[in-house]
Computed example of a mutant assay.
Amino acid sequence: MKLQLGTIEDTAKISEVHSASIQSLCKNDYGMEQIESWTRLLVPGIYEQALLEKILIVADLEDQILGFGILDHVTSELSATLCFGNSEILSIGIENHSLFVRGHKPVIEGGY
């Protein structure tokens, strides 16, 4: 698995992964109407906005996006971290102004 900065080309795959995750995780607790109301908002354009305003990170394995995170470089808040399917659990950290996943090379080194 590798971590990399997200690109405009990744937004469609991120949208699919995010929607599939909500459908899978919520199917036992919410009705289909509620799930569809959430997932219909997850169009590639909302991730494009993250590319403009924040830092979008994707977890990729063999050209399949397993998860993503959005880092707000102003507040240092990492949000929307998500892994889908049988992917390994990610332990994401920020240390010395570098964003990294434990056991992997830093995604962003020396500041964000």
Rank of each mutant, 00 (worst) to 15 (best):
M1G: 03
M1A: 05
K2I: 15
K2M: 15
K2A: 15
Q4M: 06
G6H: 08
T7L: 03
T7S: 04
I8W: 01
E9I: 01
E9M: 09
D10V: 06
D10R: 06
T11R: 05
T11C: 15
T11Y: 05
A12G: 00
K13G: 00
S15Y: 08
E16C: 05
E16D: 04
V17L: 07
V17W: 02
H18F: 12
S19M: 15
S19D: 01
A20R: 08
A20I: 05
S24R: 05
S24T: 14
L25K: 08
L25F: 04
L25G: 00
C26K: 00
C26Q: 04
N28W: 00
N28V: 04
N28Q: 12
D29H: 09
D29C: 01
G31V: 12
G31I: 10
M32V: 11
M32Y: 00
M32G: 01
E33L: 03
Q34A: 05
E36L: 11
E36I: 03
S37A: 10
T39Y: 09
T39P: 05
T39R: 07
R40W: 11
R40D: 11
L41H: 08
L41I: 00
L41K: 11
L42E: 09
P44W: 10
G45S: 08
I46K: 14
Y47D: 05
Y47Q: 03
Y47K: 02
Y47C: 03
E48H: 08
A50C: 13
A50Q: 14
L51N: 06
L52N: 15
E53P: 01
K54S: 03
L56E: 02
L56M: 09
L56H: 09
I57G: 01
I57W: 03
V58T: 07
V58A: 04
A59Y: 14
D60I: 13
D60V: 15
L61F: 11
E62Y: 15
D63K: 07
D63P: 00
D63V: 07
D63T: 09
Q64T: 12
I65C: 01
G67V: 10
G69M: 13
G69Y: 05
I70M: 06
I70K: 01
I70V: 14
L71M: 14
L71R: 04
L71K: 07
D72P: 02
D72W: 10
D72Y: 05
H73C: 12
H73P: 13
V74I: 15
S76H: 13
E77V: 10
L78G: 07
S79C: 06
S79V: 11
L82Y: 06
L82Q: 11
L82W: 11
C83E: 12
F84C: 01
F84P: 00
S87H: 08
E88T: 02
E88K: 09
I89R: 13
L90W: 06
L90S: 08
S91W: 00
I92T: 14
I92G: 13
I92H: 09
G93N: 05
G93W: 02
G93A: 09
I94R: 01
E95P: 02
E95D: 06
N96Y: 09
H97L: 15
L99F: 10
L99E: 05
F100T: 02
R102N: 15
G103M: 09
H104R: 13
K105H: 12
P106W: 14
I108A: 00
E109F: 14
G110R: 07
G111H: 12
Y112K: 04
Y112M: 07
